[in-house]
Design a binder for these strands. Structure first.
Lengths: 211, 211, 211, 211
DNA sequence: GATGAATGAGTGTTCATTCAT
DNA sequence: AATGAATGAACACTCATTCAT
C-alpha cells in the first residue's frame, strides 16, 4: 500500500494536473492531456482520484486547508482579545500585521496552487472559495467594527454599516489576492504589505469618522 | 438586408444568448440551446455572428463601450483640470463623485450585461475586462497621487508607490463591481456610494501620511 | 426539411441500428458501430435521435404502436359485447380467433422489430413491454372470467381466482411470443394458432370446472 | 488452501455478488462494486473465480444443479413407469403433482438465486437457461402426449403435434417461473399450484380432443 | 436571410481484467 | 491467499462550426 511506485504515479499526476489547470483552467483542462503528460493511462488516474473535481482538490486542497486553519487560528485569537477591549483603546496592529505576514507566507509557499484557486477554479467545487473566505471574514469584521464604533449591540448596526463592513471584508481578502497575483516573491509581497495596511487602516478611519 | 425580419431574429438571438450566458457563463453556454430558445437555427446565428465570442460581444459590447466612453470623458476632463493644480490644493471630490454617480447609472442601466461581463466572461475574449479597466484607471490614479504628495515629477515615484497606486486603481474598480453585484437597484447603489468614497479617501490619506 | 438525403440517412441509421440491436441487444449495442455501419458520424445520429433509447424507440416504436392500437381496438369491442352476455351463453370464439389472427399478422409484418422488443430490450425503456401488455390483458381477462363464472361483483373474486386469471393473461401473451419466436413465417404461425387456442380454451375450462 | 479464511472470503464475495446481480442484473453488475461491498480487492476475486461469468456461476450454479438433478430424477422415473402404460389408461397426476411440489420447494429454497437466473442472467452464459430446461422437458411431454393420444409410435406425430407439445413443455416451465416470481413464500406457491395444474390439464384435453 | 444536415474531434468516465509483489 | 496498481479499450454523448441549398 502506498509504495514508492504508486506515490510516484500520484506525484506525476498531480504535477501534470497542476500544469494543465494552471494553463487552461479547470473547465478547459483535459484529463487525457494530464494523463498523457504524466505518462499514465486514464484508468490509473481514476484509481487514485474519484473524478476531475477530486483531482483538482488533490492539487489545491492541501494548501487551502493550511490557509483556512491559519485564518481560523488568528480569528479565534482576536476574538479572545476583544473581551478586554474598551472603546477608544488603540487597536493592536502589530498582531494584525503578524497574522497577515503569516498568511502571505502561506500563499507564497504554494503560489501556483493559490493562483489556480483564485483565477482558474471556475466550474469546480472550489469556484466560490474566495467569496466563502470573504464571508468568513465578514463575520469577524462585524465584531471589530462593532467594538470600534462603541455599539452596544450588533442589532444597532444600520444597513449602511453592514454594507460597508461587508465590503471591507471583501477588500481585505482582495488585498491578499492582489499581493499574490502582482508580486513575484514572498519577499516582495511582504514589503508591499505595510503600504496595503496603511490603506486599509486609513479606509477604516475614513468610514468611522464619516458615519 | 437589415430589414425588420432580420432585426427581429438578431434581437431574439441576443435575448436568448443573454439568458444563457447569464445562467451558465460563457464556457458552459451552448449555442444549440441559445438557438433553440430563440426559435432559430444555428445557421442563422452564424449569419449574424462570426462565432461564439462574437455573439458574446453582441450581448455585452454595447454597454461596455458606453461605460468606456464615459470613463474616457471624465479622465480627459480631469487631466485638463490638473494643469491648473498647485501642490497642496484640495482635491476636487465633488467632480469625482459626479463621475462615479454617472458610472453607477450606466452600470445599472445594463445591470444584466455588466454582471455577465464581470462574473460570467471566463473563456471569452472579455475575461480580463476588469483588469483592463483597472489598468486604464491606474494612469489616472498616478496623477492624483502625484498631486497629493506634491511630487514634481512622476518619475520620482518609488516602486512601492507605484504598487500601492496600482492597487488603489484596482480597488476603485472593485467598488463598482461590489456595488453592482450587491445592490439591487441604482438607487440603493448610489446611497452606498458615499460610504464607499469615505473608505477610499481614508485609504488615500492612510497611504499619503505613511509614505 | 426532411428531404431525400436526410431521410436516407435516417433510414440507414435505423437499418444499422436494427441489425446491431438484434445481434447484441440494447445494452451491448454500440452507437459507434451503428454509425460506422451506416456510414455516418455520431454527431449525425444525435441530430436525428435524442439518445440511445430514442434510437431504439425509432426502431421498435412504430410496430409496437400498431400492435397496441390493434389490441385496444379489440379489447374495447369485446367489452361492448359483454354487455349482452348471459351466463351459460357460448363464448364467441370466432371473434377471438379473428383478433388473434390480426395480431399475428402484425407481429410477422415486423418480425425483426418484435423479436428485438421481446428478447433484446433489456436496459432500454421498453424492457417491461411484455409485462405491461400482459397486465393490460389481465384487466380484460378479469372481466371475461367474471362473466363466465356468473359473479355479481369483481369483489367476490378470491385471491386464488385473481392469481389464476393473472397467469392466464400472461400465458395468452406468451402464446404470441412463442409463435413469433418459433415460427419462421406468418403462414406457419397462423397454422399453429388454432392448436394454441384449443390449449387455452381447454385451460379455461379446466380452471372453471375445478374452482 | 481451503482454510477458514479463504472460505470466508469466498462467502463474502458470493453474498456481495448475489446482491449486486440481483439489483442490477448480470450486465450492469460491477465487479468493482462487488469487491468493495465484500471488503476485498479485485485480485482476490480473480483468485477464486476465472471471470465475471464464473462468479455468476458461483452464485447460481449450485441451486441450478440441484434443480436439474431433481428434474432428471423424476423424468427417468416416469420413463420407467411408461413401459407399463397401456393406451387409454389414466395419467398418473399424483406423481406429477408430487414432482411439481418438489420442484417448487427447491425453487423457494433458493428463491433469490432462481430469480436472478430467470430475470437477471442476460449477458451471461446462463441467459438461455429457461429455454434449455424447457427443451429438456419437451422430451418428457412428447411421451405424455403420445400416451394420451394412443399413438403407437412417436414418429406418427405431425409437425403441428410437435409444435403444440413443445409449447406445452415451455408453458409448464413458465408456470414454475410464474409461481416463483409472483408468490412470496413456498406455502403460497404450493397453494396456487393446484389451480395451475387444472389449467394445464385442461389445456391438454383441449389439445387432445381437438387434434 | 436562413435552413437542416452533417462533421469530427472532443468530453469525463467505467469496465473487466492482469500481474508483480 | 491476497494486495494495490495499472491497463487500454470502450462507452454515450456534446460541442462549435460549416455549407449546400
Amino acid at each position: 500500500m502506498g509504495n514508492d511506485n504508486s506515490r510516484e504515479t500520484v506525484e506525476k499526476l498531480l504535477a501534470s494536473a497542476k500544469k494543465e489547470f494552471s494553463e487552461k483552467g479547470y473547465m478547459k483542462a483535459s484529463l487525457r492531456n494530464i494523463c498523457k503528460e504524466a505518462g499514465v493511462t486514464t484508468g490509473a488516474l481514476y484509481f487514485f482520484f474519484k473524478d476531475k473535481d477530486d483531482l483538482f482538490k488533490g492539487v489545491v486542497g492541501g494548501p487551502l486547508l493550511e490557509l483556512r486553519n491559519n485564518l481560523a487560528k488568528h480569528m479565534s485569537a482576536e476574538l479572545e482579545e476583544l473581551d478586554s477591549y474598551t472603546p477608544g483603546m488603540k487597536v493592536n496592529l502589530e498582531d494584525d500585521m503578524a497574522a497577515a505576514t503569516e498568511a502571505v507566507k502561506i500563499l507564497f509557499k504554494h503560489k501556483e496552487e493559490f493562483e489556480i484557486l483564485i483565477t482558474k477554479a471556475q466550474g469546480s467545487s472550489f469556484e466560490n472559495v474566495i467569496d466563502d473566505i470573504a464571508d468568513m471574514m465578514n463575520k469577524h469584521y462585524i465584531d471589530m467594527f462593532w467594538n470600534m464604533k462603541g455599539y452596544k449591540s450588533k442589532k444597532q448596526m444600520t444597513k449602511e454599516d453592514k454594507f460597508i463592513v461587508h465590503w471591507m471584508a471583501h477588500d481585505q481578502v482582495d488585498i491578499f489576492v492582489h499581493l499574490l497575483t502582482h508580486c513575484k516573491t514572498e519577499k516582495e509581497a511582504l514589503k508591499q504589505l505595510k503600504g496595503m495596511f496603511s490603506y486599509i487602516i486609513g479606509g477604516w478611519f475614513g468610514v468611522i469618522n464619516n458615519t
